[in-house]
């Protein structure tokens, strides 16, 4: 049922495409880095209610921007199935003697790898502007969180892609799904300042736990215990991947 070779081949394809599209890498890194630079330096010396006194804003922001980058690249990776359908390549995959679940897992493996590489790049670049990683263990743990965030949102991307006929609804998803998920996650500011009802909604956003976990690991401040972040995020990634695979299985190829 689960076909290791097929997963590897699909992963390999993503890697080749990723490494070849240098401009794409630069492009996807630009927005997070602009956010980091302008928001970070702009708000750095302001007093932001709800933030610990010993943490400056740039340090607070770095995990949030990594989370944002993971959200966007992962959702795009999931939705990119639509482009494969548009360019016909999906049919080539679908007539191959390979189970549907392996196809989904192959894409998730590929998307997770590329998104995580980008997350790590942002983390490394932030070292230049003064961010400090506590140690090797925290670095590795943050990579685990990145993988889980990525899997969650690739799964979500799959759910959307499977239920869309073409790429026309894409900007709707950016505006009505991705940006709300981003703003609700507490990536830019502490959630404590938000009205209570919005805070409750933000608890439904998996990215909230992703950003909180990353912040706990890399900065040492978090709203929830890191282990709770981990459990919720692991759960959400499992559920999203399964739902994504299920929707993909049900969707029409032609």
């Amino acid at each position: 049922m689960i076909d290791g070779i097929a997963i590897y081949v699909l992963w390999l394809r993503e890697m080749k495409r990723f490494l070849r599209a240098k401009s794409r890498i630069v492009g996807t890194l630009t927005l997070p880095l602009l956010f980091l630079a302008f928001l970070g330096f702009g708000f750095n010396n302001m007093a932001i209610p709800g933030m610990q006194k010993n943490v400056n804003y740039i340090t607070f922001l770095v995990p949030g921007i990594i989370g944002m980058s993971m959200l966007f690249t992962s959702m795009f990776a999931g939705i990119s199935v639509l482009w494969d359908r548009e360019f016909g390549f999906l049919k080539e995959i679908m007539v191959a003697p390979v189970s549907r679940i392996s196809i989904v897992l192959g894409r998730i493996a590929g998307g997770t790898t590329t998104a995580t590489i980008q997350g790590i790049l942002i983390l490394l670049i932030s070292l230049i502007i003064g961010f400090k990683i506590p140690g090797v263990m925290s670095f590795l743990l943050s990579v685990v969180f990145m993988v889980l965030i990525s899997a969650t949102f690739i799964g979500l991307g799959f759910i959307f892609a499977s239920n869309m006929k073409d790429t026309q609804g894409f900007s709707m998803i950016i505006n009505f799904v991705m940006f709300p998920l981003f703003f609700l996650s507490g990536a830019l500011f502490p959630l404590q300042n938000l009205p209570l009802w919005i805070r409750y909604i933000s608890y439904l956003d998996p990215l909230t736990y992703g950003v909180d976990g990353l912040r706990g690991i890399l900065v040492g401040v978090s709203s929830f215990p890191i282990i709770l972040d981990f459990v919720i995020l692991a759960g959400s990634s499992l559920v999203m991947v399964l739902l994504g695979a299920y929707s993909f299985e049900k969707s029409d190829v032609v």
């Binding site: 394809r13 080749k16 599209a21 360019f87 016909g88 390549f89 999906l90 049919k91």
Partner: peptide
């Protein structure tokens, strides 16, 4: 319709 990966 064409079904190649044009990036490869």
């Amino acid at each position: 319709e064409p079904s190649l990966d044009i990036n490869l």
